[in-house]
Amino acid sequence: MPGGPRPPRSYLDRAQSPTAPTAMDLEAMRAAAWHRHGVAALAVEDIADPWLRQAVINEARRRWGPRNGGQRHGR
């Protein structure tokens, strides 16, 4: 429940900490987002066609602004 009390803390919490998702986990999450919600999550670096890659970058910048960090490609 949002805003509810937090569960009690325990020294066992460290043993059950979540691990980072693998590449296969991320790909499965992307597929699920597409099938369930119609949302395509694409890594820009994975788009081979330069024209399409730039179109995706331009649309992302238009919607959400420039990226913070990452590669600057000549800037």
Rank of each mutant, 00 (worst) to 15 (best):
1 M>V: 14
7 P>I: 09
25 D>K: 10
41 A>Y: 03
71 Q>A: 13
59 E>I: 10
74 G>S: 08
24 M>C: 00
74 G>I: 00
55 A>Q: 15
61 R>K: 14
49 D>G: 02
46 D>H: 12
19 T>L: 12
67 R>M: 15
15 A>E: 01
24 M>S: 02
11 Y>L: 03
58 N>W: 05
70 G>K: 05
48 A>R: 05
71 Q>F: 12
39 V>M: 10
59 E>A: 12
27 E>P: 04
69 G>Q: 01
20 A>S: 04
43 A>K: 13
6 R>K: 14
8 P>K: 07
28 A>N: 05
15 A>Q: 01
8 P>T: 12
75 R>Q: 15
67 R>W: 07
17 S>E: 12
5 P>Q: 11
19 T>M: 07
59 E>Y: 08
6 R>C: 13
62 R>N: 01
12 L>E: 13
18 P>V: 10
49 D>P: 02
39 V>S: 03
11 Y>P: 06
26 L>Q: 02
75 R>V: 06
40 A>Y: 08
31 A>E: 07
9 R>E: 08
13 D>L: 07
58 N>D: 13
56 V>Q: 00
62 R>M: 02
54 Q>H: 06
25 D>Y: 01
64 W>Q: 11
63 R>S: 07
31 A>V: 05
43 A>N: 05
24 M>E: 00
49 D>T: 05
31 A>Y: 04
63 R>I: 09
63 R>P: 00
28 A>G: 05
56 V>R: 01
11 Y>Q: 03
45 E>K: 10
59 E>R: 15
61 R>V: 15
6 R>D: 05
73 H>A: 11
15 A>Y: 01
19 T>S: 10
13 D>T: 14
40 A>G: 03
41 A>V: 05
68 N>W: 10
69 G>L: 09
51 W>F: 12
5 P>R: 06
28 A>H: 00
17 S>F: 04
61 R>D: 01
37 H>E: 04
37 H>S: 04
54 Q>A: 15
51 W>D: 15
74 G>C: 08
60 A>E: 02
30 R>K: 15
32 A>T: 00
1 M>T: 09
61 R>T: 15
18 P>M: 08
69 G>K: 00
7 P>C: 06
61 R>N: 11
44 V>I: 12
67 R>K: 09
35 H>K: 09
34 W>L: 14
71 Q>S: 10
43 A>P: 02
47 I>C: 08
73 H>R: 13
5 P>A: 14
48 A>I: 09
48 A>K: 09
48 A>P: 03
69 G>A: 11
38 G>T: 05
40 A>L: 15
